[in-house]
Amino acid sequence: MAGLFQRTTKRSGANVGLTIDGEAIEAQAGDLLITAILLHRTSLRRFEFGDGQRAGFCMMAACQDCWVRLADGRRVRACSTLVAPGMAVLIEGDGVD
């Protein structure tokens, strides 16, 4: 599935493997989590107070709209969290891989 974002620049950085709802994706070292997810998906999570999905907004750690759930129980702000090998992001999933 095509994501929201697209890369405009080639840059250096080793490949980093992570999963989204159990599906393996490749990110690059230096990618923020929001970048890694939105290159492959169109949202970060379901909106918890109403309909629809959310995909972030300000990209500078101010609006708090981009938090995502990880399988280890953490909730992190995707626009200020770098990808790390083995990160397991849950968008639609309920925590069960």
């Binding site: 974002f5 890369r7 405009t8 080639k10 970048t35 290159l39 300000c58």
Partner: peptide, 15 residues
């Protein structure tokens, strides 16, 4: 996204 956010994506992430 905000305009600033659109700019950060480009500057800090190359997306």
């Amino acid at each position: 996204f905000t305009l600033g956010g659109a700019q950060v994506a480009l500057k800090a992430q190359g997306v």
